[in-house]
Design a binder for these strands. Sequence first.
RNA 1: GUGGGCGUAGCUCAAUGGUAGAGCACCGGCCUGUGGCGCCGGACGUUGCGGGUUCGAUCCCCGUCGCCCACCCCA
Length: 454
Amino acid sequence: MSGPKLNTGPARGMRDFLPVDVRRRAFVIDVVTRVYQSYGFEPLETPAVENIETLLGKYGEEGNQLIYKILKRGEHESTGQADLALRYDLTVPLARVVAEHRAKLPRLFRRYQIQPVWRADRPARGRYREFYQCDVDALGSTSAAIEAELCGAVSQVLTELGFEDFRIRLNHRELLRAVLQAAGVPEGLHGEALIAVDKLDKIGPEGVTGELTARGVAPQAARALLGVFAGGEAENGALLSSLEAFVTGGAAGVAVPACLENLREILALTEGTPAAGRLRVDPSLARGLSYYTGAIFEIAVPDLAGSLGGGGRYDGLVGMFSGEQVPACGFSLGLERILVVMGERNLFPPALTAAPADVMISVFRPEDLGRAMQSALVLRQGGLRVFVYPDVDKMGKQLKYASGCGIPCVAILGESELAAGTVSIKALASGRQDTVALADAARTIQDFLGEVRG
RNA sequence: GUGGGCGUAGCUCAAUGGUAGAGCACCGGCCUGUGGCGCCGGACGUUGCGGGUUCGAUCCCCGUCGCCCACCCCA
């Protein structure tokens, strides 16, 4: 038995899910699924592995580097070339599916998808290399009603899970472009400028100015940008008005940019959804994925540095596969981010840590095990979760085992019970014990369970 | 990728330049059909891995791997 000790931990950034973990995950997934379905979203699943060219070039430079690539197999492995990759998110595979199966899908396709994705990122708190995303996406419409319903659906999920303090940060890719342009930041420096501006709450206005000029932004443009982004806690309407003044140069009679109209409409429409009051226009929100074309979102809670989820409109992605432009918008919730915060805030129902079974059957002679299994069947047909103790240990040890795993009742099949066709039911918490006919045992156990659970 | 911290029994952690202990958990007994409490006893480690200094390293030094925190980024 003794050999070299192998590292028994999972690979870096990966996790084993023990029973208590799986129960918690299933609890959250159940809520997410139920809410998404209630908004008319249909289920979809796609393969873990995609052809590598499906994924490359969709996420921006950083995303490209974080894709897990799969080497060619067999004699081609030595070439070091990769032809497959693990999916990096659920959005690009969705776009591929829609491009492939367009004719079979409804014109206004709404789907949800809860599956793992893989990123070769550095693990941290709430960040793993394999993690689950809970995506909802709606294709085929450019209406702001889509954005509003998506915000409503994720808000309802979070509210039902017990979150009361989340905010949805809202911005728009076109607005971002217009602001940078109006500030005089050249197109090529937009990415650099956004990284700097994003640090505003950490390093302050002076720090951002320094960072901007260090990245090549002219001092005048840097000052102009700060004027926009340092707006503080302005209310959504006022913020949009000042942004409008900035991007139009304050000139009267200039047409209101479509992106601002779009944001105003989204804000108005969400007032009739569970997302009411949750949205905050945030001109500094950028988001890393390059496929976004319109509104972008990110969900924030105070006690988590990262986000609980994010999303946005990507009207060009399906067209990258099929050539046919199909407008689309989606939102993604990060399952493990939700679990981390729920764990810290004790938002899980206590019953989730419950025992593996309602009752454990005890016997004391090897020849009685067959009768124990028959009795278990009777109890299972009575709706109970039944665990048959497989060994013939002393009663004390068996009771201790049941007690230790939190199994609330023990059904004792000793010599006298077997002879009489009865079973003794003991409730461990109270110590109460009744001997009843096997046919009545399930009901007795249910009664005992009822007392324990109040 | 940058900076800092930590790797000792199944778990949580002590300790010392002279080859390691406690609590919990586990097993057995007190108690041969009744658990939790108590008492008694038992088993348990190549001190992450490799190398160096040393008469001798778990401790000091170097490397390596793994984990944690901060920055960065995101779900």
